[in-house]
């Protein structure tokens, strides 16, 4: 999903920076509050950030014959919401832009928006929605993480389509072309990411359910039910 360095006209770079900045700033504010009020949740924040580090470094082959990577942002979106996730995503994107020439500084705003804001927003609301209607927790986590990953790539396709509309067919034709490259390639990877994050979530419930309850990710009843099921 990385838009490469210099591959967006400057006005689009500026636009996506302007869109992403408020999310990141509010994320930094929330991070400060978390450090003061929920110190015991910090290890889980570190684990979610580390998860983005690991998963976004794994380039995997997909059915379309090209390689792509998962985003890993679903876990943090579920536990900490999209604002804090935007800060974690920015750190990873900076690392890759500076040390790997993967993505770029000019396209950082656009890449933060797709991977660390748009995807996590979708993941967060799917999780909240699933929780509200009483869907099985692990199914909800799977759906949230997989669609968080997939939507990131849909947004990347849209960003490129807006900047480079096709001569015939305009933005829609161009979006289809980019979506085939990015979003279709991503489907199997999103499924794997969803399954792995659901598994990690199980381990987190096993080790620190108290923090998840405190962060309002799970209710006391849900934890009790999951423990009784022991899957």
């Amino acid at each position: 999903m990385h838009i490469m360095e210099g591959f967006l006209p400057w006005y689009w770079c500026a636009f996506w920076f302007a869109v992403s900045l408020p999310f990141v700033l509010y994320g930094i504010y929330l991070l400060n509050r978390l450090v003061k009020e929920h110190r015991d949740a910090l290890p889980l924040l570190a684990v979610s950030g580390a998860f983005v580090f690991v998963l976004s470094s794994l380039k995997m082959p997909s059915v379309t014959g090209s390689c792509s990577h998962p985003t890993g942002t679903g876990l943090s979106a579920i536990m900490f919401g999209p604002f804090l996730t935007s800060v974690l995503g920015m750190i990873v994107l900076l690392y890759q832009a500076l040390l790997l020439a993967h993505g770029g500084l000019t396209t950082l705003g656009a890449n933060i928006f797709s991977m660390a804001i748009a995807g996590p927003v979708v993941g967060y609301w799917i999780y909240r929605g699933g929780k509200a209607i009483g869907l099985n927790t692990f199914v909800t986590v799977f759906l949230a993480a997989a669609l968080c990953d997939l939507f990131t790539y849909v947004v990347t396709s849209l960003q490129l389509a807006l900047a480079f509309p096709a001569e015939t067919g305009g933005i829609l034709a161009s979006f289809t072309a980019f979506a085939i490259i990015f979003a279709v390639t991503q489907i199997p990877l999103a499924i794997i990411e969803g399954v792995i994050i659901a598994l990690i979530f199980k381990y987190i419930i096993q080790s620190r359910p108290d923090i998840l309850i405190k962060l309002n990710v799970l209710s006391q009843d849900q934890v009790k039910k999951i423990r009784e099921l022991s899957i």
């Binding site: 490469m4 591959f7 390689c67 500076l98 040390l99 500084l105 490259i181």
Partner: peptide, 27 residues
Amino acid sequence: WSGADSSAAEIIQSNGYTPWFTPIWEP
């Protein structure tokens, strides 16, 4: 099995776009 990122870059460049900024450091 090339990367999806570079496939997208190829499409963009085939339409005559030249990137206006290059990475400061490349491995």
